[in-house]
Design a protein around this nucleic acid. Structure first.
Lengths: 252, 252
DNA sequence: AGAGGCCGTCCGATAATACCGGAACCTTTT
DNA sequence: AAAAGGTTCCGGTATTATCGGACGGCCTCT
């Protein structure tokens, strides 16, 4: 479980940063409790990270600093698919009035690269950079559906199939059945599998070899995601979006 | 110079990340040359950071991963001023057609929190999270102008007054003269002090005690930033924007 | 106002481990 | 084919991260 790394001190620092993110700021002993280390050790790390400018200390609590903004921004901008897909995602959100998202896979997890909000979009817990198990979203499922089977198996071995809501797919065989259908159809659904009351349609963005490099989606409340709109209109619109991005990717 | 920290290994890891950011990806020996450490050591750190998901390795080169996106996003969203100012900044950009920016101070440096592009906006090197010495921008100058003098002195002691272009203020007394005028007037100018050919107007966002917590600006090419527009119209518009944000900040 | 508890910070000894040289390995070049 | 340049692996050693303990500040409760 606790994978061994060459530089343990770095790992601890990163774990501390992660705790600060989860808790949205914390004091020394609070962090210490969560990483299971003495306060003196945690204090050493917090001090180091603060001195280097990666944390800020505000009235006794440590917080993530905006130093990470530059890093995150660069990591994202490096992805050609982001730069090309962004305007299309914005348009998708405007036309549908719902949330439109862009996801990539990284280290076996789904990463929300970008999110645009349409006029009717409900408040949602997704935010840029969020990581989720691939099989819990329509986005992730389309990505898996357009990847070689052994690669998908390797990802599942690494991250398992955690159950997020009652409807999350938790069985490996069942998942592969679903993926087969997604591959045939060309788009995937998510019916309250990650968030209760929310439905989602996603289509892959593939390269020349038909391998998924990203996925786009539209998601909204179940009440609005029904009948023709859910089964034809939106899938059609999303596939068109994905296609435009694919074409623009090849000419750049 | 090389400040001493409690956990040196963490510092080295962070330096390596910084090198990868600057170079936008690099191999082991390339990084090793820049941090002045043997390749074996650098390799240990790169391996650790990659295993923990903060870097990705693509055909022999290491890159910053989108893991940082989540961290940066959270650091920014935590700032009330960002959430409140963002829509105003967008409007500012739309109305003027130029670049509109939001800056805060962190660890004695100016941090671009948000940037909106108007229809006429020229391509610029600013991006979210970018850090600059305060005195090199109109934004930074307004922030300093609305901070107590001893605090400004401390910042200057820490970061000095690096010269970026020929017109950058490099003298401490001269800077304080400028800051005094800015404090009187309520807004600051930047005439090619950071980027050749670019002019900028900025106004502070202050709290109840008249201390600057952020600054907003509009920047554009010298050709369009002249006469009345530069001396009255834009300053007036920016101050109004800053004011709206200030009011909204107190009621939240 | 005083006492007690909690939390953050500092210090120093020691055991752990980060560091680095060197060797093996892989890939590309000539 | 072999050399060059890069990356990865390995293990000894000296550095250093770690952690217990002590100090001091702050808030709370009596």
């Amino acid at each position: 479980m606790s994978s061994t790394v060459p530089v343990k001190a770095t790992k601890i620092s990163l774990e501390i940063v992660e705790v600060l993110r989860e808790r949205n700021g914390a004091g020394v002993s609070e962090v210490a409790a969560h990483v299971d280390k003495p306060t003196s050790t945690v204090h050493d790390h917090l001090r180091t990270l603060t001195q280097e400018g990666y944390l800020v200390k505000e009235d006794g609590e440590y917080y993530i600093s905006t130093r990470f903004l530059q890093l995150g921004d660069q990591a994202r901008s490096r992805k050609k698919v982001f730069e090309i897909a962004r305007p299309e995602i914005v348009e998708l959100a405007e036309e549908t009035g719902e949330h439109a998202n862009l996801m990539i896979e990284e280290h076996g997890l789904g990463v929300f690269l970008y999110k645009a909000r349409g006029i009717d979009a409900v408040q949602l817990d997704t935010h840029a950079g969020m990581r989720v198990p691939l099989q819990t979203t329509a986005l992730g499922k389309t990505i898996m559906a357009f990847r070689p089977r052994d690669e998908v198996e390797a990802i599942l071995d690494r991250h398992g199939l955690p159950k997020v809501t009652e409807s999350t797919i938790a069985d490996r065989d069942e998942l592969f059945d679903v993926l087969d259908r997604v591959a045939e159809r060309g788009y995937a659904y998510d019916d309250e599998e990650r968030v209760k009351g929310m439905r989602c349609v996603a289509a892959p963005i593939t390269d020349e070899t038909d391998r998924a490099i990203a996925a786009v989606s539209v998601s909204g409340p179940k009440s609005r995601m029904q009948s023709d709109r859910f089964t034809d209109e939106i899938p059609e619109r999303i596939r068109r979006c994905a296609n435009v991005v694919e074409v623009n990717l090849t000419y750049s």
